[in-house]
């Protein structure tokens, strides 16, 4: 089955450019602002959208995404509202893939089958669930694949060649290479190490490899895009959203437009990367 993600990466390959993958947290700082940003992301150059499902205990996330999760939960975010955001986005965009990213408990609590049917119905394309390694594939990965969703796995610097085949076995859509040992939004990766790691993963799979964690500027995004099929930016965009709150925590007017302008700069970095390299 060809999914929206497959089609998107096939097109990127045909156009000989890397994909720009953006992360924002659903409901940060509120439902309406997320929806406005979400709707504007494709126009600002996002090729794939990761939408964070807020969770009280984001163990793999750094301060920026922890804070965004807290903002979202305070403004009433929930799994149902996250799915509603996807549904509303889909009414105006049927091409841009949306991947839900988060932790297992809220999904488990809703019930895996119910969650999957709701996600498919809303127009979700893939899932990244941080605390489900391949050892726990029967929990969600296998049912998700049967439901027609891509299950995107994280590979990390600790995933050695012995382990890599198991990590890649049930991965589809793309592989998300976590470029550093650490939490989101922390240290930035060395381009040299990233290139070697992407090459190593590509020896084991024909799937596109996107790289994330620690990419904050258009220059860094461009650097990654020269070495991978996609660059993921999360914390930097989430920080830009945080900067749109006034001292009372209210959203400033024009917030979505300014966040999208920053996204556009990052997108230009990614999309111009190979052109610059070829000069």
């Amino acid at each position: 089955m060809t999914t929206r993600l497959d089609k998107r990466f096939a097109r990127l390959k045909a156009e000989a450019r890397a994909g720009f993958i953006t992360f924002i947290t659903a409901g940060d700082p509120d439902f309406d602002t997320t929806l406005a940003i979400l709707k504007g992301l494709p126009g600002a150059g996002a090729d794939v959208i990761e939408l964070g499902m807020p969770f009280t205990d984001p163990m793999a996330d750094g301060p920026a995404i922890q804070a965004s999760t807290q903002r979202a939960l305070r403004s009433g975010a929930s799994m149902m509202k996250t799915l509603e955001l996807v549904r509303r986005f889909r009414t105006g965009d049927s091409d841009t893939p949306i991947v839900l990213m988060g932790y297992y408990n809220p999904i488990y609590h809703m019930g895996v089958d119910l969650f999957l049917s709701r996600a498919v119905e809303a127009g979700v394309d893939g899932l990244i669930v941080v605390d489900l390694p391949p050892e726990e594939d029967d929990e969600l990965c296998e049912p998700a694949m049967r439901a027609g969703l891509n299950f995107i796995r994280l590979a990390t610097p600790t995933t050695d060649d012995r382990r890599l085949p198991a990590v890649l076995a049930n991965t589809s859509g793309f592989v998300y290479y976590v470029s550093i040992n650490g939490i989101t939004g922390s240290a930035s990766p060395e381009a040299r190490n990233v290139a070697a790691a992407v090459a190593r993963i590509k020896r084991h799979t024909s799937l596109p490899v996107a790289v994330g964690f620690g990419i904050r500027t258009p220059e860094q995004a461009a650097e990654i895009a020269r070495n991978a099929d996609g660059a993921v930016v999360g914390s930097a965009i989430v920080d830009a959203i945080a900067a749109e709150l006034d001292a009372q925590g209210r959203v400033k007017s024009g917030a979505a437009e300014r966040v999208l302008a920053f996204v556009r700069q990052l997108a230009d970095g990614v999309h111009g990367a190979r052109a610059t390299a070829a000069e």
């Binding site: 390694p133 990390t156 382990r163 976590v178 040992n181």
Partner: peptide, 11 residues
């Protein structure tokens, strides 16, 4: 079970 991020799984 072992519900941890991939980075920790080898550890």
């Amino acid at each position: 079970g072992r519900f941890v991020a991939e980075t920790l799984m080898p550890l």
